[in-house]
């Protein structure tokens, strides 16, 4: 009787062990959480005035100061949007994580305890045998629980996430257009002024101005790449999540794993490209 009871307890506990193979989901969500191009560009958007201020005068400068104030006011909310997406992805990665539903440590200590007390009336051979069978069953049951938790999150999360990502794409577009006006204000200033510095007396000024334009042109070119990469990154996250939703019932199939893994790789590549861009 005792052996049956202990065996039952053992099975119940070992059954809770094991974990689903959701590595692809985890990688995708993990990479998505790390993509920070949006925050960088949001900060750049906030700091627009700091960069264009030397080139603005009179009424244009007054308008720019008002814009500066409003951009700073919007900053916190803009950052929150990214923070939520990032937290969502972190939660999804944790939910799909290897350790989220893994109780093997606790089970090991429990079987250790049982083995250490021969008074229970079962020897270690029995414990191992029961653990062996239980682990197979555990794999089914916990895989199922974990997959279901991930499925629920992806299903319910898709709509608000897609909407948020669309919003972020639109925001990056507005940042980009703001940046274009900034570039045209800064470079346009030199374009207008340089032709009037062609006298021999102003040679030094002319050279300095042209050298400055050169540096600024490179700076803006690099930044423009960032907007493109950020948009690509946001779209990859959106497409990856859409794919997750579509294949929600086949998360463990090799084909789906490959597709989701590729999204994770794309996002990682985009992140690395962004790090390579200077300025």
């Amino acid at each position: 009787m005792k052996i049956i009871r202990v065996t039952f307890v053992l099975i119940m506990i070992f059954v809770l062990a094991g974990c689903a193979n959701l590595k692809a989901v985890r990688d995708y969500a993990g990479e998505s959480a790390k993509l920070s191009a949006y925050t960088e560009l949001t900060t750049r958007f906030r700091d627009t005035y700091k960069r264009e201020q030397p080139y603005l005068f009179g009424e244009a400068d007054q308008l720019a100061q008002e814009n500066d104030r409003r951009r700073k006011a919007a900053y916190e909310d803009l950052m929150k949007i990214h923070q939520r997406v990032s937290l969502y992805m972190q939660a999804l990665a944790t939910l799909a994580g290897e350790n989220a539903f893994d109780l093997s440590k606790e089970i090991d200590s429990l079987s250790g305890v049982i083995k250490a007390y021969p008074d229970f009336g079962i020897d270690s051979k029995h414990v191992d045998a029961v653990a062996g069978i239980a682990k197979v069953i555990a794999k089914w049951i916990t895989s199922d629980y974990q997959e279901r938790a991930v499925r629920d999150m992806v299903r319910e999360g898709n709509e608000p996430l897609q909407k948020t990502l669309q919003g972020m794409e639109a925001l990056v577009r507005c940042y980009k257009k703001t940046n274009e006006n900034e570039r045209k204000t800064v470079l346009g200033f030199f374009e207008v002024e340089i032709p009037f510095t062609d006298s021999p007396k102003e040679k030094l000024l002319n050279v300095l101005a042209r050298a400055h334009v050169e540096a600024k042109t490179v700076e803006y070119k690099n930044v423009e790449l960032k907007y493109g990469e950020a948009e690509k990154g946001i779209r990859s996250i959106a497409d990856g999540h859409k794919k997750l939703l579509e294949s929600i019932d086949r998360l463990s199939s090799e084909e789906v794993k490959t597709i989701i893994s590729n999204f994770a790789k794309d996002i990682k590549t985009i992140r690395e490209n962004l790090q390579k861009i200077r300025g």
């Binding site: 814009n67 919003g167 257009k177 900034e182």
Partner: peptide, 26 residues
């Protein structure tokens, strides 16, 4: 250009407002 940028800020604020429900769900 500053007038245009001011409108882009309006657009940005519109987008943020439009996302409040999604943000809550997330």
């Amino acid at each position: 250009r500053q007038r245009a940028n001011s409108l882009y800020i309006d657009a940005v604020n519109c987008i943020v407002d439009g996302l409040s429900q999604s943000q809550k769900s997330i």
